[in-house]
Amino acid sequence: MMKLAFVETKLLTREPGALFSLLIPLFILVVFGSSIEPGDTVLLPMALAIAVGLVALYMLPTTLATYRERGILRRLSVTPVRPGNLLAVQLLLLLVLALAACGLLLAVAGTVLGARLPAGGLPAALVFILGTASMFAVGLLIAALAPNGRSANGIGVLLYFPMAYLAGLMQPVHLMPDMLIRIGEFTPLGAFAQSMREVWAGGAPSPLLLGVMAAYALAVSLAAAKFFRWE
């Protein structure tokens, strides 16, 4: 199990997509960061949501569906190791990748750009956990339903853009119609981004948004588990 985790980590570092997931949100942060006021509360939560969204919708489905397509899960089922171990290792690694991307953003934004960091660590952590769980669940469902790695990648990217739009990650929220904002709050990425904005603004995340994320995390991951095929 340790060796599996070690080898998978090495494989992840050889994957250009992993580097992209780290660098794209950082790039966005730095480009827009040059024009923010000190104490900005908008840009950093946005970059964090983009980072988690990329890992969950781009990296996760592609990796898992490719593993199934290439028969790697099937090959593992004829060894004494269960293929479920590989899934667990992958989820853990991608979680670490999402954490690393967010840590990088927080570090750069907090030091160089002087953006505001949230005062309450606990609400921020809770939002991060629920948001990541709901997004990973969506990624898992794509991995479960996609026939192969390429279509998983396509579905992930295709789903990412409308979700990012509704979540207010592609334009400032105050420029969006109220209707869209309301709809966005009922998507996992939208609830995640909105509750992070609330935390950054110094308030507590609204229970409705937390509930939305928890519901997605639970329902969608159950659906993913039901539809997942090992081969």
Partner: peptide, 27 residues
Amino acid sequence: IGVQLQQTQLPENIKVWEALDLYASFY
């Protein structure tokens, strides 16, 4: 038992020795 399955692949980027070392660790 040892199995060679039809139509299975390994991850593109795994090195030959890593694959053998990894599979050895399963037994």
